[in-house]
């Protein structure tokens, strides 16, 4: 028996940029592919790109190298996909955008605002019982912030998932 024949290995987070034709049905083609091939996607960010008629999609997925290779190849087979870029953390700018609604009282309000300031997060809305804070950063920073806010009571969180671009001129 030859263990090396087995396909597998350690899992880690991968971020992949996909340039696609921007027309209805593309997202469903992608998500249907992920679903039927059993690829477990952490997040997807979609928006217009710098090229007219093309949209840029950033997906993040936790998987081993073989699964990522298969995923990239399968995605590349979709006719609507023009280009795939492996957005390795060392060569990419990685950001996530997050809105957090935190429960607040007159007593806790100032603390929350101070913590937000330290995290370079913006306070977007304040009322008697809650504060909405906007935070942008690497996912770990956002997680850290959400964890700190947990003490005051989190009412809602909305995250975009990971957005990224390759550094340099490529």
């Amino acid at each position: 028996m030859d263990e090396s024949r087995e396909i597998g290995g350690k899992t880690k987070k991968h971020i992949i940029g996909i340039m696609v034709d921007d027309h209805p049905g593309v997202m469903s083609k992608l998500s249907s592919l992920f679903a039927r091939r059993g690829f477990n996607i952490d997040s997807i960010v979609v928006g217009k790109s710098a090229h007219p008629g093309m949209a840029h999609i950033v997906i993040s997925v936790v998987a081993n190298d073989e699964i990522i290779e298969q995923l990239e190849k399968q995605v590349n087979k979709l006719i609507d996909v023009a280009k795939i870029t492996d957005l390795a953390p060392a060569q990419s700018v990685i950001r996530e955008h997050c809105l957090v609604k935190v429960a607040s009282t007159e007593k806790s309000r100032e603390d929350i605002i101070n913590i937000a300031k330290i995290h370079k997060a913006k306070v977007l809305d304040i009322n008697h019982s809650s504060i909405i804070v906007e935070i942008v950063g690497r996912p770990a920073k956002i997680e850290n912030f959400i964890e700190l806010m947990g003490k005051y009571g989190i009412k809602e969180v909305s995250r975009t998932g990971i957005n990224a671009l390759q550094r340099g001129t490529k």
């Binding site: 090396s4 024949r5 087995e6 396909i7 073989e66 290779e69 298969q70 190849k73 399968q74 590349n76 087979k77």
Partner: peptide
């Protein structure tokens, strides 16, 4: 001709 078939099942 389909690179996705290479390494899909067998190393």
């Amino acid at each position: 001709i389909d690179s996705a078939e290479i390494g899909k099942n067998v190393k």
